[in-house]
């Protein structure tokens, strides 16, 4: 059996998002021309929640978009039968401050694809990266500007971000594959 460790429970996740919302407004120096762009799948829900938190605090109506990076993946030629493509809905990004919101930052390849895709929707003044969890293991020179929490995960491990909209509950869990000792049992 794989071994699950809870990194954030629902209350910790709520607190983390509240802090991230504050940090976004600080880093973007207000909410003018701010666009939150959620990366499919879980990033979309996280961007919506951050929007609500920012709207409550600042009394505005921050723009949100969603982005599916499948068609921009750098491994499309090798992964075989095609991954399902999700919806992309982005406003014109010309002159905006874009905050790319994703659940897990791992190799950085998703972010590379998201940056390329954003460039096809105009020239943002600035792009920030906001992730709920940074698990290390980068394969590209990419860092997040706003990080919910960090974890050190081995390449075989999985980090599951669960959101109540899709999964029925909020949590961030580290799933370690069973080691040799456990497999022997």
């Amino acid at each position: 059996m794989p071994d699950r460790t809870i990194l954030l429970d629902d209350r910790a996740l709520g607190r983390t998002l509240a802090r991230m919302a504050t940090e976004i407004v600080e880093r973007a120096r207000g909410t003018d021309d701010l666009v939150l762009v959620g990366v499919q799948r879980r990033g979309v829900e996280l961007a919506d929640r951050l929007k609500r938190l920012i709207d409550q605090a600042e009394g505005g109506d921050v723009a949100v978009g969603k982005l599916d990076i499948t068609l921009y993946r750098d491994d499309l030629q090798t992964i075989g039968p095609r991954p399902v493509v999700g919806e992309t809905r982005l406003p014109d990004l010309e002159g905006t401050t874009v905050v790319i919101v994703d659940d897990v930052l791992y190799t950085g390849r998703t972010v590379r694809a998201a940056l390329d895709e954003c460039a096809d929707f105009g020239r943002p003044r600035r792009i920030l990266l906001c992730v709920l969890i940074d698990r290390g293991g980068r394969e590209l020179p990419i860092q997040a500007d706003i990080v919910g929490t960090t974890a050190t995960a081995a390449p075989g491990d999985r980090v599951d971000v669960l959101v109540s909209e899709l999964d029925g509950r909020d949590a961030v869990e580290l799933v370690r594959q069973s080691g040799p000792a456990e497999a022997a049992r």
């Binding site: 992964i79 075989g80 039968p81 991954p83 791992y106 980090v159």
Partner: peptide, 16 residues
């Protein structure tokens, strides 16, 4: 598409 043996990985849309 490319090689079918890698389909499962693609279908899962696993984190990366």
């Amino acid at each position: 598409g490319g090689k079918p043996d890698l389909a499962v990985r693609a279908g899962r849309g696993e984190e990366r």
